[in-house]
Structure formats: C-alpha cells, structure tokens
Design a protein around this nucleic acid. Structure first.
Lengths: 142, 142
DNA sequence: GCCGTCTGGTTGCACCATGCAACTATCTAG
DNA sequence: CTAGATAGTTGCATGGTGCAACCAGACGGC
C-alpha cells in the first residue's frame, strides 16, 4: 500500500526543507562546508581518529576523506600525526582552533534545532526523536 | 535541554545513513543524479511546470534549475516549451521517455523504502511517517 | 630473511551541484 | 513610452565524490 509512497515523499520533502543542497554552508547557516562540519563533529566528540576510521564514520571513500582532512588542516582546524602503532596510518586531531570552530558550529546547530523543536508540539518531541532514530537504524540495516 | 543535541545527532546520522553524499546516484541505487531525481519526481507528479516554479519547489536558484532542466533534456527526459501566458517563461514537461525514467525511479524508491519500513516495527510505522512530516513542517517554518 | 598480498593514504581524472553576477527578453506600472 | 521587476541563460568560482593508479608499511607463509 501507500506507506512506502508517503515515506518517500516525506523524506524528499525533509531533505529539501533541511537545505542539504547547499555545498558551502551548513543547513544551520554556518559558512562551513557540510562535509567539514560532519568531520568536525566527529573529531570534536571523539578526539583523535584514524583517517580510515573517520572515512568509515562519514561513509566516504578514503580519497575523499584524505582531501577533506587536508582542507581542515588548511583552515588550521586539524593536524595529522603518524599513527603510533601503524607506520602507514595517520591520526587526525583537532587543533585548539578547530575545537573552537566545532564549538561554534555546535552552538549554531543547537540554536537551529532548538528553534525547530519549538515548532514541534511539546508532546510530540520525544516521538520525533525516536522516529528518526528508528528510521536511521532501519536504513542502516538495509 | 539535550533534546536539541539528540536531534542534531539523530539528523546527522540520518543524513549519512541515507547516503545523500553520493552526487551521481540516488540513495536508492539508481544511476541518476540526486537533483535530477527530485526534479523528475515533481514533474512526474504534477505534469508541466514553469521552470521558476520547479526552482521554488526544489529550493534551488534559477540558474541551477536552468542547467538541471537542460540536463534532463539532454537525456531526452524533458522538453521546454514557451509558456503560453508569459513570453519570458518556459514550461518544462516530461517526455514519454522521462515518464518511464520517473517510473523506474519511483519503483526503486518504493523498493528501498519498503525494505526500510520492513525493519521498522509494525506499530511504529505511522509514528515514523508522522514524525517526519512534523519535523519537516517545523523546519519549513524556521 | 623474502616474496606475495593486504591495507592506509595520496593524487590524477571525470563528473555532479550550487550560487552569484551580468546580460537579454519580456512584462507591468505610471 | 519609460523605469523597474521578473524569467531564464551563461560565465565563473567553489565544493563534493568516487574510481583507478600508485606508494609505503604491515603480515603471513616458506
């Protein structure tokens, strides 16, 4: 029946409404490319990461990740250090500057999402969060 | 409180899990660029559209939309005709070929989403759909 | 210790996505 | 009829991605 169809439309609308098309700024209005924002988020949360690990989390190809990290470095937000246990790998880590950038970003996100949540009827907020998780998990398994 | 934070993480994960990064194929596995897929969907659903109208729906700049339409035309999926009521505008419309492409796409989407919904516990499907709508609406108003 | 293979990264190449600005054609008010 | 708004097109600059080719270090079997 039409649950599929509804979900399709719902997702399509969601994607557009969220403004994920913009390549050079986050949907939250920060002048930071989307990919960099994702990377920044992971690095800020979990500290130093192997580049390959980062690629895996962001679901990006290693080459893309490599360039992404290079960009972060060019902004002075991250640095590469040789992996201690494996001569091939590198560890990526935020600089203090990068930490600040991540914090700014997080704040902007919080503001945006807070505003969005304000528009969601009080009683449904938990449902929305839960639904999103359920959906993501389901997509992950597919 | 941390509802914001949860929502942020949830959305970020959702975006990645859905694979929206891929520029040259839909998250549903079809070898069609994402933008074209969106456009195709609108045109298949509502028939002929003014290019500016399409731009508005896809939340894209008119120039981007213009090129997007050109690509559809190059694939033989759409055609431009002068707008009957306004000498400046053009109407964009799918060709039979485009209709077929849209149908294929819709089917692939349905398959993917059907698979996803299968992983969502029966009782929660309606909630998920509803939550997504609520969230989209909330984002729209922001 | 050596060789074949695997794995993490980097770089070259091709393509897609987007916006802004400048320009043309057309429409609309006064 | 002219000034200003609107629909589209095209040039230019940025960004995002993957795949393939290539390099270097790691690992296993002999």
């Amino acid at each position: 029946m039409s649950d599929d169809r509804e979900l399709q439309e719902a997702v399509a609308r969601f994607v557009r409404a969220f403004g994920l098309h913009q390549p050079d700024q986050t949907p939250c209005g920060q002048p930071v490319p989307v990919s960099e924002a994702h990377a920044l988020g992971e690095l800020a949360r979990d500290g130093a990461l192997r580049q390959s690990d980062l690629a895996h989390r962001l679901r990006l190809e290693k080459s893309t990740t490599s360039r992404l990290v290079t960009q972060l470095i060019n902004r002075g937000w991250a640095e590469r250090t040789p992996a201690p246990d494996d001569g091939r790998g590198v560890l990526v880590q935020l600089t203090p500057h990068g930490m600040k950038a991540a914090a700014r970003l997080a704040e902007a996100r919080a503001e945006r999402f807070s505003a969005v949540l304000d528009r969601v009827p009080e009683g449904e907020r938990a449902d929305v969060l839960r639904a999103l998780s359920v959906l993501t998990e389901a997509m992950d398994e597919t």
